[in-house]
Simulated assay, not measured.
Amino acid sequence: MFTLIGDLIGSREAPDRAALQRRVGQILDQVNEAIDTMQLLEPTVGDEIQGGFATIGDATLATLVIRLELAPDADMRFGLGYGDVTVHDGDRRPLLQDGPGWWAAREAIETLKGKRGTLYVGPQDGDDTPDPAFVNAFLLARDALVATLNARQHRMLLLALKGQSQRAIAEAEGITESAVSQAFARGVRAAHDAQITFGKAG
């Protein structure tokens, strides 16, 4: 399973931390409905979340959608891993579990401490798993590109990832289709297409 651990950045400085935590819960519910999971995304302890996916494409898509949903008021860093997972108590929430999959995701997010973005730790020579260097090269480029987009472009990218047409995005933003097309040409389309293409490859 591809494992995901997310860590909310700077929540202690949030004007209303409880409201932010509720917002995170709502976003996780939306992502659980939109993206196939092997283990539902859920809050764990402190500012962390966790979840599991069958593919690296779905795992990386979840990280992008969550960050876009949180923007511009908050952000989250993500550690992704791969490996077996053992659930010791399936009735407890969050689940009581461990295993190599979670150890890898924990290693990834600990490596990111103090930084933003997403990092993957996985088998170096796995026959059925992607090369970590390949995944992390994609994640570095994707996150750097998304960081160049403004708040409106973030919203456009999120709507595009949800399958909305440029016409629908223009209506949602109250602007012309031409303005949306220009925004897509300035990075929205590249970020969208890169994520979708990576998902198909992974």
Rank of each mutant, 00 (worst) to 15 (best):
M1A: 14
F2W: 15
T3G: 07
T3V: 13
L4T: 01
G10A: 12
G10F: 05
R12F: 00
A14H: 15
A14N: 15
Q21H: 14
R22C: 12
R23Y: 11
Q26F: 04
V31G: 08
E33A: 15
I35Q: 12
T37W: 03
T37A: 15
M38D: 11
G46T: 14
I49N: 10
G51I: 08
G52F: 10
A54D: 05
L61W: 07
A62G: 06
T63W: 09
L64G: 02
R67T: 02
L68A: 08
L70A: 09
L70R: 10
A71K: 00
D73S: 11
M76C: 14
M76S: 03
F78G: 04
L80V: 03
Y82A: 11
G83K: 06
G83E: 03
D84P: 03
V85P: 08
T86H: 04
G90A: 15
R92T: 14
R93Y: 08
R93N: 11
P94I: 11
G99I: 05
W102A: 06
W103N: 14
A105V: 13
E107C: 01
I109A: 02
E110I: 07
L112W: 08
K113I: 07
G114Q: 07
K115V: 01
R116N: 07
R116I: 03
R116W: 00
G117H: 04
D125K: 12
D127W: 06
D127N: 06
P132W: 02
A133F: 05
L140R: 14
R142C: 00
D143W: 04
D143G: 01
D143Y: 05
A144Q: 09
A144P: 00
A147K: 07
T148G: 00
L149V: 03
N150A: 03
A151N: 09
L157D: 04
L158W: 05
L159Y: 11
K162D: 09
Q164G: 00
S165Q: 05
S165C: 03
I169C: 04
A170K: 04
E171A: 01
A172G: 05
G174Q: 02
G174Y: 14
I175H: 07
T176I: 04
E177N: 08
E177Q: 13
A179D: 09
V180K: 08
V180C: 10
V180W: 06
S181Y: 04
Q182S: 13
R186C: 00
G187L: 12
A190V: 15
I196C: 11
G199V: 11
G199Q: 10
G199I: 06
